[in-house]
Simulated scan of single mutants.
Amino acid sequence: MCTYATMQAAIDGSAKGPNGSWFHVTDATVYFDHPVHAMADHTLNIDFAAPERGPSARVGVELTAASARELVAAIQAALASGPS
């Protein structure tokens, strides 16, 4: 079921784009909706972007709900194992 809830976060990181070049990303958009490519009815979609560089400076990810929960757990575990 689509929630139409879109969450945004200001981020500071890097992403590797379609041409193989790295670029600085400043925005993350997260929403649960129909995927464009993934073979699932609904996915958690995450877009990492650098809006000031135009629409091509974007990396999108579509994850099943189960995969997204596994990713959240893995991120939390990785952060917990590092320095504060």
Score class of each variant (00 low, 15 high):
Met1Leu: 11
Met1Asp: 07
Cys2Ser: 11
Thr3Leu: 05
Tyr4Gly: 09
Ala5Phe: 13
Ala5Asp: 14
Ala5Asn: 14
Thr6Gln: 11
Thr6Asn: 06
Met7Glu: 14
Gln8Tyr: 08
Ala9Leu: 12
Ala9His: 07
Ala9Lys: 08
Ala10Phe: 08
Ile11Asn: 12
Ile11Pro: 14
Asp12Ile: 02
Gly13Val: 01
Ser14Ile: 01
Ala15Thr: 00
Pro18Gly: 12
Asn19Thr: 15
Asn19Ser: 14
Trp22Ala: 08
Phe23Ile: 07
Phe23Glu: 03
Phe23Leu: 06
His24Ala: 06
His24Asn: 05
Thr26Cys: 03
Ala28Phe: 05
Ala28Asp: 09
Thr29Pro: 00
Thr29Gly: 01
Val30Glu: 03
Val30Ala: 12
Tyr31Phe: 10
Tyr31Leu: 08
Phe32Asp: 08
Asp33Met: 00
Pro35Asn: 02
Pro35Trp: 10
Val36Met: 06
Val36Trp: 07
His37Asp: 13
His37Cys: 03
His37Phe: 14
Ala38Glu: 12
Met39Leu: 08
Ala40Ile: 09
Asp41Ser: 13
Thr43Gln: 09
Asp47Met: 01
Phe48Trp: 09
Ala50Thr: 04
Glu52His: 11
Gly54Pro: 07
Gly54His: 07
Pro55Ser: 05
Arg58Met: 12
Arg58Asn: 09
Val59His: 02
Val59Met: 07
Gly60Ser: 14
Val61Gly: 00
Glu62Ser: 05
Leu63Tyr: 09
Leu63His: 10
Ala65Asp: 01
Ala65Asn: 03
Ala66Gln: 10
Ala66Gly: 04
Arg69Pro: 04
Glu70Ala: 15
Leu71Asn: 07
Val72Cys: 08
Gln76Phe: 03
Ala77Thr: 10
Ala78Pro: 00
Leu79Thr: 03
Leu79Tyr: 01
Ser81Pro: 03
Ser81Ala: 15
Pro83Val: 05
Ser84Thr: 08
